[in-house]
Design a protein around this nucleic acid. Sequence first.
DNA 1: GACCTGCTGCGGATTG
Length: 731
Amino acid sequence: MPPSASEASSSFALLHERVRRWIWDQQWSELRDVQELAIQTILRGDGDAIVTAATAAGKTEAAFLPICSTLVGDAAPGVQVLYVGPLKALINDQWRRLDGLCESLEIPVHRWHGDVTMSARQKLIRDPHGILLITPESLEALFVRRGSEVGRIFAALRFVVIDELHAFIGSERGMQLQSLLHRLERVLHRRVRRVGLSATLGDMTVAANFLRPPNDRAQAPAIVKSEEAGTGVKLRLYGFRHPLHADDETKKEKDDPTLASIARHLFEHLRGSNHLVFANARGRVEGLTDRLARMCNEAKLPQEFFAHHGSLSRELRFEVEDQLKRGERPLTVICTSTLEMGIDIGAVKSVAQIGVPPGVAALRQRLGRSGRRGEPAILRIYIQEETVTDRSAPQDAIRATLVETIAMVNLMLEKWVEPPLAELVHGSTLVQQLLSLIAQYGGITAADAYALLCASGPFRHVPRAMFTSLVEQLETRELIRRERDGLLLHDEKGEKVVNHHDFYSAFKSPDEYRLVSGGRQLGTLPIVNPVSEGSFLIFAGRRWRIVAVDAEKRVIDLVPSAAGRLPIFDPSDGPDVHDRVRREMLAIYTSDDTPVYLDAEAADLLHEGRRNFARFALANTNFIARGDGALYFPWYGTRAMNTLAQQLAAREIKVSMEGLALVALHITPDALRDAVDACERERPIDTIALAAKVKNTLEEKWDWALDDATRFASYASRKLERNPMPSARAR
DNA sequence: GACCTGCTGCGGATTG
């Protein structure tokens, strides 16, 4: 419910007079509903809060108008507000935004990240005061490098603000942030109010437990939620079918004929205004931008298609972002998740999604980029399907790509999103935090470290015995050593890693070449790419020839060229699909409804998928014979499916995950059914014992340093389910 | 069938 008029005016009245004057100067006609509610919550309450509202609904002001009201005239030495953001570009944006408000209130606003000058940092260290905007990594560096000064710097701390809260939940970086905030409160010997800001939060309990874990709080945070209605969605899903016999024209596009059709459609529909095209993978971004850019050149039109992804240099990305922000000329940006959230690029006229979205949450976030000033958001989805014949395997014949996309759209329209993974063990990040703690205090006993990080801290799923064996393993690895008095110190190797700047991040980074042309940084390329002088490359949506490779410095020099070849970016397993999405797919297969947003080809593909679903009798059985093997369709998400695959492997039944199906060779459907039944009787599953049988459990940054027990527990919490829901079983 | 994120302090040279 929006606040009543009397509540609204009382919100405004709660603000400090100088904050009210600043609002008048902005000539705002009214406060947004999320701002009204946040002012009440923050100024009337004294606990933690989560502020959630759509992009551009004024969340930053919702938090900082009331927070700054409490700061006016407070001259106590020390930083008063610590703001943590996930991106340097976002911190720069927010710094500019807050500076206007805070200048008039005489509250200094500092930023601290890798690109901030040494002199600005020294200014803060000498005279800490006001608001500090920082990344988790730079906060980590403060603890490692200036551990003894943390108490002085933050002596006056009253609020911690976490921006884009959802971007941290469930990740190594999120665990690192939780640990840092807990360590900070330990130094200060008191709790500090936390305020989380987010647009997409599926599960408020998970978000609340992330903001402050239940073992560290008296009461749950207040939830401040905007009730402002959206402006509606215009939605269209286009199907594209690979032709059975390539004709002359498509032969030229032999690599991906339907992508050529998609490019033509985009070219015709998007030219002349601003759009975002989400293409999922960096290689696909390059391929599509290259096609669209060439179409522009051939039509002798000014270039309006540009690429944007994480391997492009900051300069190239900034140019594109800047053009989008200005909105002075038509521009379509083909991107990965880089433009899904964060920095303010303004709204675009429409959004296109190429291929299955990586999840419902991502789809919603992407859609949120479209819809200018009261206009409905426009979303076009393009789905490619392979040629299917009578001999195609069932998992390929049922048009799973299309049906999975329809399932995600349906769930988005129902306002459901995936809850983030929570309650993970995070052994890798625990190693980092233990090494950091030793640096901060100049040594710590194992008992104190356990009490701080695990018993009262965020690593609460690590029992004492596991921590003890972890510490022993780190001694064996020569990362730490134990003094006679029990104090843990860095050993030779530990000293080295902690003193290298790579230490501050909790996540791993791949080895890459740097790409340079005429002294200009273009971006980075994974070293798995075969590179030699004279070979060609497509990068940043343009074509290049390699003129020099410096293998030692890992630098590649490029010059523009007419030919090009698509680069390889690191292949991985693909995004996790949630159980709920797979259940929705089953419901779509067993229904007769055709969603109104499908075009003719997509509708035809859906009917064909349903016909084949019926042909294989998948409504009546989950098991199908195939050659001398068998298929099993559990209608599970990827985590539950991986769990079952590992259980079967432990029973000497080798299965591979092929989309919706588990595929086993040399087995009858009945024998596979018996094995699956036996696996289902094992619940709850001993996932740690199961993880011990998994071939490769080395995934995260510090996994190599973990003892077996902690590594298996980490893998199990991340990749296995103790109690998968019963599979959707036909008779 | 995947994406994204981050980075200190020192010493030495140069400049005001």
